[in-house]
Computed example of a mutant assay.
Amino acid sequence: MKEQKYHLYLSDDEYRQTIQSLVRLKNNLISQGRYTDEVDDVLCKVLSAKIRKLKIKYIYM
């Protein structure tokens, strides 16, 4: 079965909050003595993701 891909478009603030949340989750798991492998994988994917500049057009109704 082919793995489904997802795309996230985050602003600078959302990107920073995502990284902070993942690090906080990893620290909580470490303090509980649980594995952090999955959080590490997601954190690496977010940190190594390409940064794209997008123009957003707003349509006012």
Score class of each variant (00 low, 15 high):
Leu43Lys: 00
Leu47Asp: 05
Glu3Thr: 06
Ile30Thr: 15
Asp12Lys: 11
Tyr58Gln: 13
Asp12His: 05
Lys26Arg: 14
Gln17Gly: 10
Arg16Ile: 14
Gln32Tyr: 04
Glu14Asn: 07
Leu25Ile: 13
Ile30Met: 13
Tyr58Pro: 00
Arg34Cys: 05
Arg16Asp: 14
Val46Asp: 02
Tyr35Phe: 06
Ile56Pro: 00
Asp12Pro: 04
Arg16Ala: 15
Tyr9Pro: 01
Ser11Glu: 07
Ile51Cys: 10
Thr18Leu: 06
Val39Tyr: 00
Met1Ser: 13
Asp37Trp: 04
Leu29Glu: 14
Glu3Asn: 08
Ser31Val: 12
Lys5Trp: 10
Leu10Met: 11
Leu10Asp: 06
Glu3His: 11
Met1Arg: 15
Lys5Ala: 08
Val42Met: 11
Tyr15Ala: 10
Leu25Glu: 10
Tyr9Met: 15
Asn28Phe: 10
Ser48Tyr: 03
Val42Thr: 09
Thr18Lys: 00
Asp12Asn: 15
Ile56Cys: 02
Tyr15Asn: 11
Arg52Val: 10
Ile51Arg: 11
Val23Arg: 13
Leu25Thr: 07
Met1Cys: 10
Lys55Gly: 02
Asp41Ile: 05
Gln4Val: 12
Leu22Phe: 08
Lys53His: 10
Val39Ile: 12
Thr18Val: 05
Ser48Trp: 00
Gly33Thr: 00
Asp41Ala: 13
Ile59Trp: 00
Ile51Asn: 12
Tyr15Trp: 09
Arg16Val: 15
Ile30Gly: 06
Lys53Ala: 08
Leu29Lys: 14
Ser48Glu: 05
Leu25Val: 12
Lys50Asn: 13
Met1Ile: 09
Asp41Tyr: 12
Ser31Arg: 14
Gln32Phe: 08
Ala49Val: 07
Lys2Cys: 06
Lys2Glu: 15
Tyr35Arg: 04
Glu38Trp: 04
Glu3Met: 08
Cys44Ile: 09
Ile59Arg: 03
Lys26Ala: 02
Ile30Ser: 07
Leu29Val: 12
Asp40Asn: 08
Leu54Gln: 05
Tyr35Cys: 07
Tyr6Thr: 10
Thr36Gly: 01
Lys55Asp: 01
Ser31Thr: 09
Leu47Lys: 15
Tyr35Thr: 11
Val23Pro: 01
Ser21Tyr: 12
